[in-house]
Design a protein around this nucleic acid. Structure first.
Lengths: 219, 219
DNA sequence: ACGTTATTCCATAGAATTTATGAATTGTGT
DNA sequence: ACACAATTCATAAATTCTATGGAATAACGT
């Protein structure tokens, strides 16, 4: 009959994935990794962790096989193990947002006042019509790892100095890492403060790519 | 600027969902709940837990809002909070199966030798053609809560005594709770040992329902 | 070969959590 | 008032989490 130990063992394996998702810092790391491969110290800096702590978290993710490693010279690049992992992470966020009342306030506290959004489909239509400027405000390395076809890269930190590079009289749609990333929110507020028409893509690069929408790689 | 505390708080919320998924017993409970609402003691018995321990686990799930409660007389019925939760749970299993080498052996140890499978789409075609008997081998209560349209209910525990109820000369497709449930595996082996042509639906009731395939409710 | 650099490993440590058990309690319905 | 289901509580051992700073490892450049 059903060996209760065998059953427990199987669910133990499933739970390895759950345990990997059980820490806020690890979810932050997944968020960063969804933008492309990254080295440990890069991730540590971006996530506000010490290198050791970051490495430890990454190894939890690695033991659950949510990430893969690749050695490039003296450094180790971590990447998500597959699109299914990206989708799983998105699923966690979606379920949390749909059912946890605290997510709303937490979003507002972190992202600030709502800015006008645009959906992926509408952006694709507008991009094909050519009457919109798509703006990637993530760090340059993330843009290189993959961006929306036709997007220009101006990291948020440089945006106020480089406003002139944006063609005048066209609406700007800014995007970043995902629906819970501040960068595009801040960018839109900054652009509007300078009198530009700007909206934010409702989600970010990973969702765009997973939808099969056109992506470009490189500088 | 970006308040690091606000960011941490947001990811803390996301991690609540992850934490809820971080225990094998809780995943087992989700598996059971995906079949329909259930009382605490029912769940406790099915999952091999004491009532207290089961109640505690359920409250972890409830605090993460993965389940909802409904009072019916003297007992409390727990249900999944939505289809997104069912999908999230399926996602965890899928990622584990795709990336964790240990899942294969654990499956074999629990489910036994592979039995022939059939996909949802093929089953639907065959069912429409009418040349197949669909057999639900889950406990009767789960059948009542929702089953594949046209399926007959013979819980695995009664199958060997009730073989005569199955129309002769038609192939039988057995299904149960999902891809990692033993019931249909055992049923197919039992049927084949009695000389019947039998296969197993590759996944179970929740996946069938989520695909939008026809479902019936009641005895 | 040697120094540099990135990452992992180790030792530590406190805090916090997890899990389960059995008994007591709450609350609902008969 | 009684019976029953579920939760809470008191325990308890075990485990786990998290982060830190320093040592070990491994690969590269000179």
């Amino acid at each position: 009959m059903a060996d209760p130990h065998a059953k427990a063992e199987l669910y133990e394996q499933f739970a390895r994935v759950g345990k990997a998702l059980a820490s806020p810092k690890r979810l932050e790391l997944l968020d960063l990794l969804a933008q492309g491969g990254r080295s440990v110290e890069d991730l540590a800096a971006e996530a506000g962790l010490g290198v050791s702590a970051c490495s430890a978290h990454l190894q939890v993710l690695h033991r659950a096989r949510l990430v893969t490693t690749r050695k490039q010279g003296t450094r180790v690049f971590y990447s998500l193990a597959g699109d299914d992992v990206t989708r799983l992470y998105a699923g966690v966020r979606q379920v949390a947002a749909a059912h946890l009342a605290e997510v709303g306030p937490a979003c507002h506290a972190y992202l600030g006042d709502d800015v006008e959004q645009i959906t992926r489909d509408e952006l694709l239509r507008r991009a094909r019509a050519g009457d919109v400027t798509i703006l990637d405000v993530r760090p340059a390395a993330e843009y290189s790892a993959g961006h929306i076809s036709g997007a220009v890269s101006i990291p948020l930190s440089q945006l106020s100095q480089r406003l002139a590079e944006l063609p005048p009289d066209t609406e700007i749609v800014a995007y970043c890492r995902g629906p819970y990333c501040v960068l595009a929110h801040d960018a839109v507020r900054l652009l509007r403060a300078h009198g530009r028409a700007a909206r934010r893509l409702a989600d970010g690069m990973p969702e765009w790519r997973l939808s099969g929408f056109p992506v470009a790689v490189g500088a």
